[in-house]
Structure formats: structure tokens, C-alpha cells
Simulated assay, not measured.
Amino acid sequence: MAAKRRSSFSFKLQEFILLLLVLISGVMLAFSSGSFVINVKTVGFSVLSSVERQVHSVATGITDVFTAAHELAKLRKEYDELSKKLENYEQMQRSNAEIRKENERLKEQLDFSNSLEEKNYPAQIISRDTDNLYAFLTINKGSAAGIRKNMPVIACQNGTSGLVGKIIQVGKYTSIVMPVYNLNCTVSARIQNTRDLGLVSGNGNQNANLSMKYIRKRVLDELHYGDVVVTSGENSNYMRDLPLGTISKITIVEYNSSLDIELTPVIDFSRLENVVVVNMREINDSRKE
């Protein structure tokens, strides 16, 4: 019984030793043929390639992020520069438009000044008193330019000429104008179509209508809304036939023999900037024929 156990054990040991020798021989054969080394290299290369690919992907992603941030900053800078250029361009366009309008106004004033028979002095309104019923305008020309008291002041606005008022006070470099809408201003005037004579006076406000008195009731049927009222030229205070306004309202007063007539001024005083002061005693030497 004991002999059988010893024999079984010996057989198993021998088989193990044989298997071990075969395994060792196989390994040595593999080394000698180079296949094991190649396999190791292949496995190592695969592992390293995977690691390198992941590292490259991460590095590329980080690089793309920094590149995108740089491009975004560059685009934002270009956008800000273009926005500033656009703003400057729009401002320049507005300035050019204002300059063109100013040039048109000055050209209109110059042409108007040259067309007058009388010597005249173009001027600009530099201030206006509109806080009370006796409003006045101040212009930038005075005695040094040839301005004298009681000279009439006229203007051309949008192709329409009209009476502004008259000079009541003169300084060396500035003068004060009493406009036709001043309560103290009274102008001898005629209805252009019928030639009926009356007096036009102001109501103290540059936005208010003018009043015309002393037009007889019997001419009512001859009057129409929109009829032009002009200066009469009497008393040598103003030139003849200067437009003052157009008839906008006619009121019949029972106890009065004349009509109450309202006039819309031909000059928009709230937009008036430039005027012409006229010297009725001298001829305009620069007049264009």
C-alpha cells in the first residue's frame, strides 16, 4: 500500500519536472527566435501609442481653447474699433449735414442781401428775450458795422421774405431789435389784394398771431383766408410791400365799424437765426443784376 503511494507521487513529480522543462525550453526557444521580444515591443508600443494619443488629444484641446480665446479677444477688439469708426462716421455725417444746412441758410441770406436795392448788413441773432410781453432780439452787429437806430430788419426764410422788426438800440458790436410780435410794435400795412390800409401790431409772443385793425366791415366779402398783408411803406419806416403775414381769422365786432383780423406771420420766429438790417438811405453797391 505504501509502495503504491510512493509510486504515484514519483510519477506526478516526474510529470511536473517534464512539464517545467518543456515550458523552459519553449521560453528559451522564443527568446532565441525573437518572437517574445517582438511581442513585448508590440505590446509596449500599443500602450505608449494609446497614452501618447490621449496626451495629444488633451494638449490639442487646451491649445484650441487658448486659440479660441485669443481669436475671441481679437474679434472683440476689431468689433470695438469698427463700432468706434462707425460712431465717428455717423457723427461726421451729422456734422456734414449741419454744415450743409448752415451753408444753405447763409447762401440764401447772401443771395437775398445781394438782391436788395438798399444797402444792408447781414447779421445773426445771438440772444432773445421771451420772458415777458415786450420781447426783444439781440443781433451780432452794431455801430461798428454801420447799424443805426430805427433801421428796418427783414429776413428770408425758406424762400419767403418778411419783416422782422426794427432796430431800437445800438451798441458798438451788438444791437437790439424790436420784433413785430412785440406789444409796442405797430406797422402800417395793407391787404395785398384789396389794398385796404390798416395797422398791424404784436401780441407779445413769438408763437402768437399778429393783429390787424381798422379794416372796414364793408370790404368783408372781398377778403379771404390766406390773403397776404404787406407793409404800406408810408412814413418811411419800412420798405413798401414787405410781407407781414396771411389772414387766418376774421372777427366781426358788433359795436365797431372795423374788423378784427388775425394774421399768421410769414416768418417763423422760433426758427429764425439770421436777419438783414437795411439802410434805406443808401444804395446797395454789391447788388447782382
Rank of each mutant, 00 (worst) to 15 (best):
V229A: 03
V22F: 09
K4E: 08
H56I: 02
D241A: 00
R148E: 12
G202I: 07
V228E: 09
S32L: 10
H224Q: 11
N193T: 09
S95H: 07
G162P: 04
L72I: 02
N184Q: 07
S127Q: 12
E78G: 06
Y181E: 12
I247W: 05
E118N: 06
K107C: 07
M92A: 13
L197S: 05
R271S: 15
V22Y: 00
S175T: 04
S115A: 09
N182Y: 04
A97T: 07
A69L: 09
F136N: 12
L82T: 02
D64F: 06
D129G: 05
R271P: 08
S50H: 05
T160A: 12
N207R: 15
L163M: 03
F31K: 09
V58G: 02
S127E: 09
S25W: 08
N140W: 13
L48F: 14
G26Y: 11
T264A: 06
R94Y: 14
D221Q: 09
M212H: 00
E102S: 10
T251C: 02
M151V: 03
Y89M: 15
R287T: 00
V266W: 07
L106N: 04
T138E: 15
S211E: 00
E262M: 07
P243W: 01
F36R: 08
A68T: 07
Y89R: 14
G159P: 13
L263W: 03
N207A: 09
A73V: 13
I139F: 02
T60W: 05
I261C: 05
I252N: 10
G245E: 05
R5N: 04
A144W: 03
A145W: 08
L197K: 08
T63W: 09
N158M: 05
R148C: 07
V230P: 01
R76V: 05
G26I: 12
N88C: 10
K166A: 13
R53G: 02
C156E: 08
G204M: 01
A135V: 02
A68D: 04
L21M: 14
K288A: 07
R6V: 02
I24A: 11
E289R: 13
F31W: 14
S115F: 02
N207W: 08
I261D: 01
V200H: 14
G44K: 03
M92F: 03
E273M: 13
P243T: 00
F269I: 06
Y238N: 00
L244M: 08
I191L: 01
N207M: 10
L183T: 09
E71P: 06
T42R: 08
T42M: 08
R240K: 01
